[in-house]
Design a protein around this nucleic acid. Structure first.
Length: 306
DNA sequence: GTTGAGCGTT
């Protein structure tokens, strides 16, 4: 039963589901709607009920049409007291949305790179060879480079990279499926931001949450020779579809590249300001392996000045 | 009428 009249699940394609935990047993969808709708277009609210008694099970799913709005709700409502209880608001992990995410893996579809690098990791399609973080706005000319990526361990983390920069609070990787990369970046000290990215291999779905201090947002279209574009967000969420490499730059630069097996219109993008994240994948940009220096040294990167 | 970790409607 959904908040919007119909019985049964609504059209869940392209929606972003949040799990709301710890709501009181009397809280209804109608109670939740005004609260969540403040942050974006809520397309459905569902509160699981006990099959027999019909009582609320104490949690709810709130579905947003747009990822960034869902993220905003998480930021603003997680920990908020509702009906006397401190609710938890997070992206739903299982269920309808998760299933959607698991479809269409390019790892199986792309002949490219198959048979390559088998000795290192058979399941790995793309390997992060470098992660570079540039803090343009906050500290001009400062370039911090993470030259090596760490393997988090296990099939799940294959290809995932973790880097640590001592002036930052830390980075961590999460929710990754073999073959791709996920990086969670937390930059609490310098840019007061944190990031959460989840990618399923091939399908390349990522959520990147970045809390940026200020955000001048600029959108740059696909670059010549670039099949798909990037993504980013002003503050909060980025969803990449079949993106195997990304670069998010600050307000001064943008851009980037990436290869995607899908048309760019399936990508959602917004720009993040204040810092940059670059991930290079060996099977895409082999020549850049091991390079260091400023971003400008990367020929494969296009910069757009503002 | 109470309760309190959790991941969905047929």
């Amino acid at each position: 039963m959904s908040h919007f009249g119909r019985s049964g699940p609504p059209d869940i394609s392209d929606t972003y589901s949040l799990l709301i935990l710890n709501i009181s047993f009397r809280t209804t969808a109608d109670d939740l709607f005004p609260l969540f709708d403040k942050y974006g277009k809520v397309v459905d609210i569902f509160i699981p009920k006990d099959r027999r008694t019909g009582d609320s099970r104490g949690f709810a799913f709130v579905r947003y049409k747009y990822a960034d709005e869902a993220q905003k709700a998480v930021d603003r409502l997680d920990g908020r007291e509702v009906d006397g209880r401190e609710i938890t608001v997070q992206f739903a992990k299982y269920g309808p949305n998760a299933e959607r995410i698991h479809r269409g893996r390019i790892i199986e579809k792309s002949p490219r790179s198959r048979g390559r690098s088998r000795s290192r990791s058979p399941s790995r399609r793309s390997q992060v060879i470098g992660l570079e973080i540039v803090l343009n706005i906050i500290t001009p000319d400062t370039v911090m480079i993470i030259t090596t990526t760490g393997i988090i361990g296990g099939e799940v983390a294959a290809g995932a990279g973790i880097g640590t920069i001592d002036t930052m609070a830390g980075n961590e990787a999460i929710a990754i499926e073999a073959g791709v990369v996920a990086i969670v970046q937390t930059m609490t000290e310098l840019v007061a931001g944190d990031a959460m990215m989840t990618m399923s291999d091939g399908a390349g779905v990522a959520l990147l949450k970045v809390v940026v201090l200020e955000g001048v947002c600029h959108l740059v279209g696909p670059l010549p020779g670039v099949e798909a574009l990037i993504a980013a967000v002003d503050h909060q969420v980025v969803v990449f579809h079949q993106t195997v490499a990304i670069l998010i730059l600050g307000a001064f630069h943008l851009v980037v590249l990436i290869r995607s097996d899908r048309p760019s219109h399936e990508l959602e993008f917004k720009l993040i300001s204040s810092f940059a994240i670059l991930m290079l994948f060996s099977d895409i940009f082999p020549s850049s392996f091991g390079r260091t220096g400023s971003l400008h040294d990367f020929s494969i990167i296009s910069m757009t000045g503002l």
